[in-house]
């Protein structure tokens, strides 16, 4: 009996990128760079009043990490779609690793499954990207 999860996904990611632990400083920098000034990410008092023990990362910061992994592998022009679900809150101090797995290929598209997980392996973002196969195929070697 084949493991259904293993059957769904190849064992090795085709792309992988790790990021340093997310600090308060990083959240302040991202707040400025992204224009997302929601205080829940930078103001401890606000976060506590909203019922959280501490500030936490912008989901879009972690999605930007996934985007950077893609950009470092191939041209942004070849990315046709890029989507994520924010599965869990990314806590302060989380060291995020992004991975991409090939889910499917058609004659002109490559479909990737994406994950961003912390150092414990807890998945924070789950996503997918659709790439232009002509532009991207050579980036994955024998894939």
């Amino acid at each position: 009996m084949q493991d259904s999860l293993a059957a769904e996904r190849p064992v090795a990611p085709v792309l992988s990128r790790s990021f340093p632990p997310i600090s308060r400083h990083m959240l302040a920098l991202y707040c400025g760079a992204s224009g997302d000034h929601n205080p829940i990410h930078v103001d401890l008092d606000f976060a506590r009043s909203a019922g959280f023990p501490d500030v936490f990362a912008h989901g879009m910061l972690v999605m930007a990490y996934l985007g950077l992994m893609l950009e470092e592998a191939g041209p942004a022009e070849g990315i046709l779609e890029f989507s994520t679900r924010f599965v869990a809150i990314t806590q302060l101090g989380a060291a995020i690793t992004c991975e991409a797995y090939i889910r499917d290929m058609t004659h002109d598209r490559i479909l990737l499954d994406l994950t961003a997980a912390d150092e414990c392996g807890d998945v924070k973002l789950q996503g997918r990207a659709v790439l232009n196969r002509q532009i991207w195929e050579t980036r994955f070697g024998q894939a």
């Binding site: 760079a33 930007a64 950077l68």
Partner: peptide, 22 residues
């Protein structure tokens, strides 16, 4: 800020339109 080694790229990063609106 997100750790890109080549920040001078002229094409917007994949999530940039979200930021641009804000």
């Amino acid at each position: 800020v997100i750790g890109c080694a080549q920040p001078g790229e002229q094409t917007a990063p994949p999530t940039y339109l979200f930021a641009l609106e804000m």
